[in-house]
């Protein structure tokens, strides 16, 4: 299963890495690391043969993540690119090993969805020395020198929170008592989606967050927190803002059990745009979801091709997020892929 896969995928690159290290020591290192000069040594072997791209994924912890992996795999197949896939199971050390492995195998480019923000300096330097461009997807990272990666393709979590807040302000004409269901404390989406929402609320005096608790991005968490808060705040609550759809779906159940109508008595807005959210919107229990698209494949490979061709590209590409409400749900639900 998973174990054997990761075992093989970590051991094999290690062997290759040792080999590569010995080559490097004997003096095969490229003399120049500037990316402005064309790199004929690189282009020659790949000219005719297919492009080889390594993809270091975080893991498969959510349907969103699975959809992202799927999108990248499909796009690779579409473009006839050979994709080497590595699942880090949520651990940075696995991911660093995987990237080192890709470097040793001499891939043409690396797509990386970093588990955490820090600790990438060395491995990215190695990639740069080997003249392998690194494309970051969905999460950023902190390095002293941003030439260490080619570009970042990600959603703007702050913008998502702001879009959710603006939608709610418009819908309620600037008057609401809101329960906020936060994601896992300390995680980037939870921090940014909270901030963005709060920013949107600043312009509306009548909109107040009366309670803000963590549902840990879980359905059960969303239900438990909503259940408890509805008992304390009772009829005051007019809206719920959840940092992801799963918590919103849990909250909907809690509202139903409290004898109220979700989507009518209490408005619910969330972020992600997973299939369950669209189903709930068709049913009328969820009011709005801000899409955070995991379908990064096409953008990622565009970036790969540009990086290899040494074309100019922006350091950061923001994936267009879109607001979906009930009026649009019916029309698009069948075209949703995750």
């Amino acid at each position: 299963m998973k174990q054997t896969h990761s075992f093989r995928s970590t051991i094999a690159p290690l062997g290759a890495l040792a080999l590569a290290a010995s080559i490097a020591i004997t003096g095969c290192k490229p003399e120049s690391t500037t990316t402005t000069a064309p790199a004929p040594s690189k282009a020659a072997p790949t000219g005719e043969s297919t492009l080889v791209v390594g993809f270091a994924q975080v893991g498969a912890e959510s349907s969103w993540r699975t959809a992202e992996t799927q999108s990248i795999k499909e796009e690779a197949a579409e473009r006839g690119v050979e994709l080497k896939f590595s699942d880090a199971q949520g651990k940075q050390e696995n991911q660093i090993k995987a990237v080192n492995g890709f470097i040793a195998q001499g891939v043409d480019a690396i797509i990386l969805a970093p588990v955490v923000e820090t600790g990438w300096e060395q491995v990215l330097k190695d990639a740069k020395d080997a003249e392998i461009p690194v494309i970051l997807v969905d999460r950023g990272l902190k390095v002293s020198d941003d030439s260490l990666y080619a570009t970042l393709i990600a959603s703007d979590f702050v913008a998502e929170g702001r879009m959710a807040g603006e939608w709610l302000a418009k819908k309620t004409e600037g008057k609401a008592s809101i329960i906020e269901l936060q994601g896992t404390p300390g995680s980037a989406p939870a921090i940014d989606r909270k901030k963005g929402f709060a920013d949107a609320l600043k312009e509306h005096e009548g909109m107040k967050i009366i309670a803000s608790q963590s549902g840990d991005f879980r359905r059960s968490g969303g239900k438990e927190v909503t259940e408890a808060l509805l008992k304390v705040h009772g009829d005051k609550v007019t809206a719920i803002y959840a940092h992801n759809d799963d918590m919103a779906l849990g909250a909907i159940q809690a509202i139903e059990e409290a004898g109220k109508k979700p989507g009518t008595d209490i408005l619910i807005v969330s972020i992600d745009g997973v299939r369950g959210a669209f189903e709930a919107m068709v049913k009328g229990t969820l009011n709005c979801t801000v899409e955070c698209s995991p379908l990064l494949g096409p953008l990622a490979f565009d970036a790969v091709e540009k990086a290899i061709a040494l074309d100019e590209q922006p350091k950061k590409t923001i994936v267009e997020d879109q607001v979906f409400d009930q009026s649009m749900a019916e029309a698009v639900i069948d075209s949703r892929r995750y």
Binding site: A60, E61, S62, D216, F217, R218, S220, K223, L249
Partner: peptide, 16 residues
């Protein structure tokens, strides 16, 4: 109980 509670099996997160 956990599955019944949320009318769903959330394999990756339940019982964590």
């Amino acid at each position: 109980i956990a599955a019944s509670n949320i009318k769903a099996a959330d394999s990756s997160r339940v019982g964590e």
